[in-house]
Computed example of a mutant assay.
Amino acid sequence: MAFGPNPPPIQAHICVKGGTDAIAFYKKAFGAECPFHALAEDGKRVMHANIEVFGGEVMLHDEFPEFGGGVLSPSSRGGASVTISINLPKPSDVNAAIARAEAAGANVVLRAEDTFWGARYGQIQDPFGHIWAFNAPLQETNP
């Protein structure tokens, strides 16, 4: 099913060049699950996929330059225009997420470091051109 019963109020919908490979990468790098994906009529490109990751959901699809609006990935556009931010509970989770993504083939854009805003923060670029940022508070907060 492409649309579950409780969709989040905001979802990222990313375009990639190589949708099937992207799904495999996100599974390996982030421990993602893909409960739904559908291929285009050509039987090769991903028309739509739902990727469950870090307690949220990202939708993705392959490039479709034949559609209006220039549906192209960051790889074809020359870079990403947004950063996908992941908020994690502990500083060590940031280190672990970046290490796992790097081992799966991501490039580290910014090694994890403690920041002036009181967080552990770092960024990776996935093989499809998207930037993912990982953020966790340095001190645990009590609700």
Rank of each mutant, 00 (worst) to 15 (best):
F3A: 11
E33K: 11
I14S: 05
L60F: 09
A96N: 06
V46K: 12
P89H: 04
T115A: 01
M59T: 07
V109Q: 07
A22F: 07
P65V: 04
G70Y: 07
G18M: 03
F134C: 00
K44C: 11
N87R: 14
V94I: 01
D21T: 10
Q125Y: 06
P91K: 05
G56D: 05
A136F: 02
F128P: 03
Q11T: 12
F134G: 02
Q11K: 13
D114C: 09
P35A: 06
L60I: 08
A24W: 01
A136H: 04
H48T: 01
R100N: 15
M59W: 08
Q123Y: 11
F134T: 03
F25Y: 08
A97L: 02
G122T: 02
F128H: 03
V58H: 03
K17C: 10
F128I: 06
H37V: 05
P5K: 15
I51D: 02
F67E: 11
V94L: 01
A40C: 10
N95Y: 12
P143L: 14
H37A: 14
P65W: 05
Q139I: 06
G18Q: 03
S85T: 14
T83A: 15
P74K: 00
E113Y: 15
Y121H: 08
P143A: 08
G78C: 04
S73P: 02
